[in-house]
Computed example of a mutant assay.
Amino acid sequence: MARHAVRTSPSSTRRTLLRAGLTVAAAGAAVAAGGAAASAAPGAGVDTGTPVQALTQAVHTSTGYGLAPVKDLKLDPLAGTGVDPLDNAIGTQVADFKPVSTAAVTGPVTSGSSLSELPLVGPATGLLPG
Rank of each mutant, 00 (worst) to 15 (best):
M1T: 11
M1Y: 09
A2M: 10
A2C: 03
R3N: 10
R3M: 11
R3A: 14
R3P: 10
H4L: 13
V6I: 12
V6R: 05
V6H: 07
V6G: 02
R7Q: 13
T8E: 12
T8W: 03
S9T: 15
P10H: 09
P10M: 00
S11L: 15
T13C: 10
R15D: 13
T16C: 01
L17V: 07
L18G: 05
R19I: 14
A20T: 08
A20I: 12
A20G: 04
A20L: 13
V24C: 08
A25F: 01
A25S: 11
A26L: 08
A26R: 10
A27G: 08
A27F: 10
A29S: 15
A29G: 13
A30C: 08
V31L: 14
A33V: 14
G34C: 04
G35N: 02
A37N: 10
A37V: 15
A38W: 05
A38K: 07
S39F: 07
A40V: 01
A40M: 11
A41G: 11
G43C: 07
G43N: 04
A44C: 07
A44F: 10
G45Q: 04
G45T: 00
V46D: 03
G49R: 08
G49Q: 01
T50F: 08
P51E: 02
P51K: 04
P51Y: 03
Q53I: 07
Q53P: 00
A54I: 01
A54S: 09
L55Y: 06
T56R: 15
Q57I: 03
V59D: 03
V59A: 15
H60S: 15
H60A: 13
T61E: 07
T61F: 01
T61Y: 12
G64N: 05
Y65S: 12
Y65H: 12
G66D: 02
L67F: 10
L67E: 01
A68S: 13
P69T: 01
V70E: 01
V70G: 03
V70A: 05
L73R: 11
L75F: 04
P77M: 00
A79F: 03
A79H: 00
G80M: 05
G80Q: 01
T81Y: 02
V83T: 14
D84H: 02
D84A: 05
P85S: 03
N88I: 14
N88L: 15
A89V: 04
A89P: 08
G91W: 03
Q93E: 07
V94K: 12
V94Q: 09
V94Y: 09
D96N: 13
D96W: 06
F97G: 06
K98Q: 14
K98W: 07
P99R: 13
V100M: 04
V100A: 11
S101N: 06
T102F: 05
A104D: 14
V105I: 15
T106D: 10
T106G: 07
G107W: 00
T110K: 09
S111K: 12
S113P: 01
L115G: 01
S116K: 15
L118Q: 05
L118P: 02
P119F: 02
V121C: 02
G122L: 00
G122K: 11
G122A: 02
P123A: 07
A124R: 09
A124G: 03
T125W: 04
L127S: 06
L128E: 02
P129S: 06
G130H: 01
G130F: 03
